[in-house]
Design a protein around this nucleic acid. Sequence first.
DNA 1: TTGAAAGCGTTACCAT
DNA 2: ATGGTAACGCTTTCAA
Lengths: 349, 349
Amino acid sequence: MSTGPTNKKMTVKSVAEILGVSTATVSNAFNRPDQLSAGLRERIISESALLGYYGPNPAARSLRTGATGVVGIMLAEHLAYNFTDPCAIEFLQGVAEVLDKAQVNMLLMPGRQEFYKEKSLEAIPERYILYGPPRDLEILQRIETQRKPVVTVDFSLPSHLSVNVDNYGGASAAAKHILEQTTGAIAVIGIRLCDSGKLQTMENQELNDKSLSVSCQRLDAYLCAANEAGRPISLDRVWSTDESTWMHGVEAAERILSTEPRPEGLLCMSDQFALAALSVARSMNIRVPEELKIVGFDGTPESKRYHPELTTVYQPSLEKGRLAAKMVLNPNDYESLVLPTELMIRESS
Amino acid sequence: MSTGPTNKKMTVKSVAEILGVSTATVSNAFNRPDQLSAGLRERIISESALLGYYGPNPAARSLRTGATGVVGIMLAEHLAYNFTDPCAIEFLQGVAEVLDKAQVNMLLMPGRQEFYKEKSLEAIPERYILYGPPRDLEILQRIETQRKPVVTVDFSLPSHLSVNVDNYGGASAAAKHILEQTTGAIAVIGIRLCDSGKLQTMENQELNDKSLSVSCQRLDAYLCAANEAGRPISLDRVWSTDESTWMHGVEAAERILSTEPRPEGLLCMSDQFALAALSVARSMNIRVPEELKIVGFDGTPESKRYHPELTTVYQPSLEKGRLAAKMVLNPNDYESLVLPTELMIRESS
DNA sequence: TTGAAAGCGTTACCAT
DNA sequence: ATGGTAACGCTTTCAA
């Protein structure tokens, strides 16, 4: 009857009492091995497990020490969207790999103000990785005032570490490549270049803030490269979609490939878009690369598996995640980083 | 000078003092709107935000009330692996959708004992979703003793809600279909059918526990269907890999398609495997479906995008996630569920 | 509507 | 090496 955990709630106090030691000793057994003999420590640890006490209550410990062992991953948007984006997933995979190994928990947090209304959830994590600029920037202030280690990814914040990739360089290489391979019109499928929330061209639209949006940095590179080549891309051939999903890509590609004159080159800001365009081209009987050259962005695994294999700009998403996680755990060992991107010329261009 | 949050740490106490009300009133403003006038409440909320107090400290609140507003998602394995598996990702997407909307945080937790050694992290979440049986089953006990709502997915636990899919039915349909389409040998690529950790056939191997492993349930269905058709599949044609990744799939497919006589049908326990097999077949110049029929499992989006389109068993991963999340938030409104699977016959068989 | 105070489970200091 | 105890920030009861 008396074996196994009792159903009574165990605390340092009750454990100490049962084992006949003081609460300080129990606490030390779990937190400061050097404060007691190895033998006693071992005895306490194993006996308390038998009693159903597996370690200090996290809430109480956290209240007392301020430490939680949790890293917050703040995502720019709704949580669910990120599980839709291969890049975000690879990034999270990299983060998970490192944090898991370091025995710290990952708390996923949406970047919308409303989530935090009248709660101070931002107090839970001890460290933060911000993946993209949170949709509601006020959240940043609340995180800032806590003076916790913060690493930003795909954007930068004064006096915080950041991990970025060379979006401009990659997009520029992609555009130059497409410009070389074509003589006719070139179109662009971009991601949230403006805030309209629907598929539309950028004609007469206001661009989002370039410093906060990698899409706008990429567009900038495309447009500059085209201008330098003396073949400017007009804004009515630059399309903005709300999200980087297959569906949105299909929709955009269908519109674009029905315009006259039909573009000969398609610069896509994600592989999802490019793959969708490839599929639309196939069903419209447009031959790729003969009649249409397509370049993607991201270099996701699927881009290499598809046929024809996709020409794309590789960015090291997995590595971005690993680095961000390592940085946030040991901020002093690192400096901000811009990782290279690389144009992978394959079959679609 | 006095505008904006001070850098001093704000608490109910200091806020109450500054605003000239009692701590009880501040607390009530944040937790029990009915306990004070709307006007006062509003004033307190907005003034404290100005002071840099956005709500009660979660650790203290949680210590006091026992509530944390966090749902733990316990994954069977290392965290990172799940970001590799399209099914897990879709599942997480579904979970995220619902939890995000319900304003609760998701804490990702690995299912390995070592992570919890001498900590009682399991105390943090208020509710649990267990996605697959945790690798170290002792963890279950620790969760159990807390008497918190638990929903299991892809396995079941006595007296807890569960969400499962009809693995047996789906696998059975897949096998029957392949048996109809072929006359020659049939091979299987399975996921962790035994615990060897490497690619190998199941000849003379001990199968994992059927009640805990969906793979073994699927295998069971394949083998029964084959027996019923009078064309038993011998265990040296049943391969087990350690993880459902493209790489493992390629490796397995290369081995299998080099055996003599070459199989005419391939039953794959994931779309990743099936897609990898398709790719290997292509590079070995084996025509699909003419010379080789392939069926996958999962019905991931990619299976439909690939050419040839993959015949596969669809399971509603996204819906599984949504349901698990809804269940765990409102356990009393639900009963355990087995969702249907569906054979999607497409081009690869 | 308010004020006072107990107590949630820890940890860390200071003694012993 | 161990024990006693104050304090972490909060919620909630009770009395006013």
